[in-house]
Design a protein around this nucleic acid. Structure first.
Length: 497
RNA sequence: GACCCACUAGCUCAGUCGGUAGAGCACCUGACUUUUAAUCAGGGUGUCGUUGGUUCGAGUCCAACGUGGGUCACCA
């Protein structure tokens, strides 16, 4: 079609000078009988490893490969810096070593190209550990220029949309994602060592349950069936406890169809774990242990600095009931409030908005969110949430209006949530019915009825403690990242306009 | 969803009161055999996010839209 032709032509016209020059060089490389986009190369050493191990490697022959970051030509000799995953090293290229013809190929070399170099490890007069190249070959031509070497890439939009550029030119970014990987490794090591079994449960759910959130919905064509992206793995993991696994965990992605902020990405990573015969106290202790262990293993300390604030992750963390916390920071004693009318009056005085569906417990939770959360800078467990807002948690034995539940807060942000699991199928069914009623009255974050889950409970769920920890937020704290987007490789973005 | 801020060369950024579009790096041409933000000489490569409006004249003022960031709202 004519349209296609025009597309090709206009695409060609869009090449700026630098892109055209690089394409010309690519063609010149091909004209020499060299593939501009190579196939295979076996480095013997990492660039950064050579620098680290110079004592052993001095005067040794090495073969390295990486991306050209800088080139400094000096006539019949040139210097370049080569980057691979292990770090950077300088390469020194001399016409009299490489030969005139090969040396001329350097004219076709650009910053950003990926090349292989063989040569001898040595130290220059200025003390820079370098490789004196005896051979040099093109591995992949870069057809676009890299961002600037000194200021790097700062444009936030480009950094997120083209994360590969961010990773190439901003070394701290790579560091953050290496730490992220180590955090998850450390988490798995910890749980494995405690006898937990790692499992995988569905991400496509016929019923989205386990949390109060709006799901993404999708459709299975062959089955002509509506499906949801999971908002939490909770109900499946507890089915596994019914099935006889006594300690399970899953590290995985949850999807929630909600707003985006520095603390929220539509897909985010959580670990959820369940331990049979345990209660919320057991998993509460586990929470502070696992976070402290990860911090110690990955960054070498449990005393961290986040956004200029010193935070001590060393157990034990503070423990405070929600009622106590609300009293401490708002002056309101909800244990003395016995009617919804009284609770509403308090909320009105504090100018906190509530809805008709909110009972005493939900209103206390609103006060908590509004007046308490921001003060919980040092790691703090808030214990004893209203049962009203905890439809999957077991009631407290002494006070059925509160649940055996906790949330862990750091820097005013919730990083974990755990409870004694509701294992009474009759109570669970009634709570679901309650949620369904709320749903029908317009709350699209209320739970859907999950009959099969209730059936599973009817076969017997042992007393169980369950815990969920937001991994992204943990990574944020341990890498001192301001935004969740800085700990997610490809954060969600709109279509480019 | 509301409000605020940003968008200028490949990258990082200037751009005065509305009067011919600028710098550094990168790039191009040349010199240079231990440099390292190499240096030296020469060269500006642009749909000023988009579309309208005001004006003799708009990168600059106004409006709408787009994208990003932030605050709030919403929310594990």
């Amino acid at each position: 079609m004519a349209d296609d032709k025009e597309t090709v032509v206009s695409a060609t016209e869009e090449l700026n000078e630098q892109m055209q020059v690089r394409r010309d060089k690519m063609a010149a490389i091909a004209a020499l009988g060299i593939e501009p986009f190579g196939r295979h190369y076996e480095p013997t050493h990492g660039c950064g490893d050579i620098v680290k191990n110079f004592d052993i490697l001095e005067n040794q022959e090495v073969r390295i490969a990486g991306r050209i970051l800088t080139i400094r030509g000096h006539g019949k000799a040139s210097f370049a810096n080569l980057l691979d995953i292990s770090g950077k090293i300088q390469i020194y290229l001399r016409q009299d070593v490489l030969g005139e013809e090969t040396y001329r190929h350097l004219d076709l070399l650009d910053i950003g190209d990926i090349v292989g170099v063989e040569g001898t490890v040595f130290r220059t007069q200025r003390g820079e550990i370098s490789v004196k190249a005896t051979k040099f070959q093109f591995l992949s031509k870069a057809l676009r220029p890299l961002p600037e070497k000194w200021h790097g890439l700062k444009d936030v939009e480009t950094r997120y949309r083209q994360r590969y550029l961010d990773l190439i030119v901003n070394p701290d970014v790579q560091k953050t994602f290496i730490i992220r990987s180590k955090i998850i490794q450390s988490l798995r090591r910890f749980l494995d060592s405690k006898g937990f079994l790692e499992v995988e449960t569905p991400i496509l759910h016929p019923i989205a349950g386990g949390a109060a959130a709006r799901p993404f919905s999708t459709h299975h064509n062959a089955l002509d069936m509506k499906l949801y992206m999971r908002i939490a793995p909770e109900l499946y993991l507890k089915r596994l406890i019914v099935g006889g696994f006594e300690k399970v965990y899953e590290v995985g992605r949850n999807f929630r169809n909600e707003g985006i902020s520095i603390k929220h990405n539509p897909e985010f990573t959580m670990v959820e774990l369940y331990q049979a015969f345990a209660d919320y106290q057991v998993v509460l202790n586990l929470t502070e242990q696992v976070i402290a262990t990860i911090a110690q293993e990955v960054i070498g300390t449990t005393k961290i600095s986040y956004q200029g604030q010193e935070i001590d992750l060393t157990p034990p963390w503070d423990r405070l009931t929600m009622t106590e916390a609300v009293k401490k920071y708002s002056g309101i004693d909800f244990s003395a409030i016995k009617t919804v009318e009284a609770a509403r009056e308090v909320a009105d005085q504090l100018h906190i908005a509530y809805e008709p569906k909110h009972g005493i417990g939900a209103i206390m939770n609103l006060v908590f969110e509004e007046m308490v959360e921001e003060h919980l800078i040092q790691p703090t467990f808030i214990i004893g949430h209203p049962t009203e807002i905890s439809p999957l948690a077991k009631r407290n034995k002494e006070n059925p209006e509160i649940a055996d539940r906790f949330e862990a807060f750091i820097f005013g942000r919730e990083i974990g949530n755990g409870f004694s699991e509701l294992n009474d199928p009759i109570d669970q069914k009634n709570r679901f019915l309650n949620q369904v009623a709320q749903r029908e009255s317009g709350d699209d974050e209320a739970h859907m009825m999950d009959e099969d889950y209730v059936t599973a409970l009817e076969y017997g769920l042992p007393p169980t403690g369950g815990l969920g920890i937001g991994i992204d937020r943990v990574v944020m704290f341990l890498t001192d990242s301001y935004s969740i987007r800085d700990v997610i490789l490809f954060p969600h973005m709109r279509h480019k306009g």
